[in-house]
Write a protein that binds this DNA or RNA. Structure first.
Lengths: 205, 205
DNA sequence: GTCTATAGAGCGATAGAC
DNA sequence: GTCTATCGCTCTATAGAC
C-alpha cells in the first residue's frame, strides 16, 4: 500500500512536470530531458511510466483541452437567466485563464499543428447545440427580448474577448507599457466591458 | 546584372520557403531540411545566405510581426469618422487574416515562448497612444457621443473578435461541424456582428 | 521501481571541391 | 553561387544492473 502510493506519487510528479514544460514550450520545444529534470527523475523512468514523449504529450493535451473547453461548456449549461449568466461566464472564465495563462495558446497552437485523433472523436457539436445556453438564446429571441444569434458566434465572441488578451499577453503588456499588476488589472477591467458589450448588442435592434 | 537578379531570386526563394515552414510549424517544429527542400536548395546554401536557422527565423518573425501589427495601426490612423472606421477595420482586418490564416497563432505563440530583443526595442506604446484613433476616442467621449474607453481596450476587443476565430479555427470548425466554405462564411458573418457590438457598447450609457 | 550507460537516429553547421 | 560529404552535438528510447 505504501508502495502503491509511492508509485502514484512518482507518476503524478512526472505528469505535473510534463504539463508545465509542454505548456511553456509546446511539443517540439519541450525536451524529455527538461521534463525529467523538472520531475527530479531520469529519462528511463519517464519512459517506464509513459512509454514515449508522444504518449505523454497526448495525455497532457487531452486533459488540458477538456479542461479549457469543458469549463466553458459547464458555464454554458448553468440554468440562470441569460444576462446573469453572461456576466458570470465572463467573470469566472476570466479568473480561470488568469490562473492558467499558458493554457489557451498551448491548446490552440498545438491544435493547429497536429492531427489529434482523440480530438476528432469528441462530439463537440452536440455539446454546444444542446447546451442550455443554446435553448435560452432561441427562446429569448422568439420572445423578442434579444436579437437572434448563433450559439457558435456567441461562443467565439465570449472566448475572443476573454481569451485573446491572454494569448496576446506579451504584446498587450508591451503596447500598453504595463507591468504584471497593471496587466492583470487590464484583464479585470474587461469583466465589465465584455458583458456590457454583448448585452448591448443583443438588445440593440 | 543578370547575376545579381539570380542571386536575389535564390535568396527570396529560401526566404519564402522559410516563411511557409516557420508559420506552419513554429521555430522548434520547423527543420532546416524542410526549409531547404521547400526552397529546392540544400542546407549549405541556406546557411550561405542566412548564416543560421536563428537568424533566418528572426528575420521572418520580425517581418511577420510588423505586418500583423502594422496593418492594424495603419487602419487605426485612417482619418475617417469613428463609426465608419470601426466598420472598415473589421472588414479589412478580417480579409487580412483570412488571407494569412497562420499568421496570428505564429506571431502570438512565438512571442510567448521566446525573448525577442527586436520586439522590445519597438516603441509600440507611442504608436498606439498617438494614433488618430486614440485622439478620436478622447474627443468623441468629451463630446458625450460615446462612452470613455482606453485605446488598448478597443484594440484588444477588435483583435479578440477578429483574430481569435482564426486562431481557434480547428476548434471552431469542429464544434460547428463546418467545412472550409462554411467556416469562411462564419468569419464573414462576424463582419456584421463585431462592429455592431462595439458601436452598441460605445453608445450605450 | 529506479538507476547508469549507451544505442541509433536526426539535427544544424561547415569544409572544401567545383 | 552551389554542391557533396561529413563533423559534432543533441535527441529519444532502451538494455541491463540493482
Amino acid at each position: 500500500m505504501a508502495k502503491k502510493e509511492l508509485t502514484l506519487d512518482t507518476e503524478q510528479k512526472i505528469k505535473a512536470a510534463a504539463k508545465e514544460v509542454f505548456l511553456r514550450n509546446g511539443f517540439h520545444g519541450a525536451k524529455v530531458k527538461d521534463i525529467a529534470e523538472a520531475a527530479g527523475v531520469n529519462i528511463a523512468l519517464m519512459n517506464y511510466y509513459f512509454r514515449s514523449k508522444e504518449q505523454l504529450f497526448e495525455m497532457i493535451f487531452m486533459e488540458t483541452f477538456l479542461s479549457f473547453f469543458g469549463r466553458m461548456i459547464t458555464l454554458f449549461n448553468e440554468e440562470t437567466p441569460l444576462e446573469v449568466k453572461i456576466w458570470k461566464i465572463v467573470d469566472q472564465y476570466t479568473d480561470f485563464v488568469i490562473e492558467n495563462p499558458l493554457m489557451p495558446v498551448f491548446v490552440l497552437s498545438e491544435l493547429q499543428k497536429n492531427e489529434l485523433t482523440f480530438f476528432k472523436q469528441l462530439n463537440l457539436p452536440t455539446l454546444l447545440m444542446e447546451s442550455y445556453m443554446a435553448k435560452q438564446l432561441r427562446e429569448e429571441a422568439a420572445l423578442g427580448n434579444i436579437r437572434e444569434i448563433e450559439p457558435l458566434q456567441l461562443l467565439a465572441t465570449l472566448m475572443g474577448n476573454i481569451v485573446f488578451p491572454v494569448i496576446a499577453r506579451p504584446m498587450i503588456k508591451h503596447i500598453g507599457g504595463l507591468d504584471q499588476e497593471q496587466y492583470n488589472q487590464f484583464l479585470i477591467d474587461r469583466k465589465q466591458i465584455t458583458p456590457r458589450m454583448i448585452m448591448a448588442f443583443l438588445r440593440d435592434r
